[in-house]
């Protein structure tokens, strides 16, 4: 194992330990389990209302697209990605990292890896619980489990890419949260609905291109959300997301190694 890889691993271990105890983690964990709670409410409502049927797959698809993909992973990636550097500056703890025998790139990569791993597990747990509740009558169906696996994989890719992107923003910008909010809920939620090639300028486009075929239950409510999607091929989507992730992390490491950071007095 190279010296950089060893340092990344030690930083990863350090922050995986810390992130589990952080107060905000508890809040975001609760938010991540909201889909499961919503699924439970829908299920209970169906049991209490004779004749009301629940289209589990349709509800699940809606939750994945509108809540997890277009809201939750953006918020998580924004807050955790930008905080990779910002929390060290605000807490004035950066000194403990930059005066260790740890390459600066390892600080960024190790902390990024720790946060993303934790977020993926947290989001996957919420999604899986929602899936079990909504697919309670179809748990023996292998196709249903494939839908879960693919949905979770898309969310994981989203977290990897967006967190990398916001890590870069955090390294380069002072007001990275403001920029991130505008990017997430402006650009990323509008551009994918543009027709033609324009939508390919949004990361969200490639994530939506990878989602499993949507079960809308006929003319479902969320069909309009996909109305103008002209999906890229899975291979193109994965390559694009990988390139964005690698480029963002590479630039973040490069910039972090060259910039000086001063604490606000």
């Amino acid at each position: 194992m190279s010296a950089l890889a060893r340092s990344v691993r030690s930083v990863f271990s350090f922050y995986l330990f810390i992130v589990r105890r952080a107060r905000r983690t508890k809040i975001f964990a609760l938010v991540s389990f909201l889909p499961a709670l919503a699924a439970l409410v829908i299920r209970v409502n169906a049991w209490l209302s004779p004749g009301a049927a629940v289209d589990g797959p349709a509800v699940f698809s809606n939750i994945i697209l509108t809540f997890n993909l277009q809201f939750l992973i953006l918020v998580l990636a924004l807050f955790y990605g930008t905080s990779i550097l910002a929390e060290e500056l605000e807490g004035k703890t950066l000194t403990y990292l930059t005066t260790r025998a740890v390459p600066k790139a390892a600080i960024i990569l190790g902390k990024y890896a720790a946060y993303v791993s934790f977020l993926i597990v947290m989001v996957a747990a919420g999604v899986t619980l929602a899936f079990v509740i909504l697919f309670a009558d179809r748990l023996g169906d292998a196709q249903a489990w494939l839908v879960l696996a693919r949905s979770a994989a898309v969310l994981a890719l989203g977290l990897l890419t967006y967190t990398a992107f916001f890590t870069l923003a955090g390294v380069l910008l002072k007001k990275s949260i403001l920029f991130g909010l505008m990017f997430s809920f402006g650009w990323e939620n509008i551009v994918p609905y543009f027709p033609g090639a324009t939508q390919r300028f949004a990361i969200m486009h490639y994530l939506k291109s990878l989602l499993p075929p949507i079960s809308t239950g006929g003319e479902g409510n969320f069909a309009f959300l996909m109305f103008k999607l002209e999906p890229s091929t899975p291979a193109a989507a994965i390559v694009t997301l990988a390139v964005v992730t690698a480029a963002a992390l590479g630039l973040a490491c490069w910039a972090f190694a060259r910039k000086e950071y001063l604490f606000e007095e």
Binding site: R6, S7, S10, V11, S13, F14, F17, I18, R21, A22, R23, G91, K92, T93, T95, Y96, L97, T99, R100, A101, V102, F263
Partner: peptide
């Protein structure tokens, strides 16, 4: 080969004293 004691009273408050020192040593490899 260098040990630095910063001026600012800043720590990872989620940790205990023992964890703080041990985990920082972990960073050193």
């Amino acid at each position: 080969r260098i040990g630095f004691c910063p001026e600012q009273d800043a720590f990872y408050d989620e940790l205990t004293g023992g964890e703080f020192v041990t985990r920082l040593l972990g960073l050193q490899g």
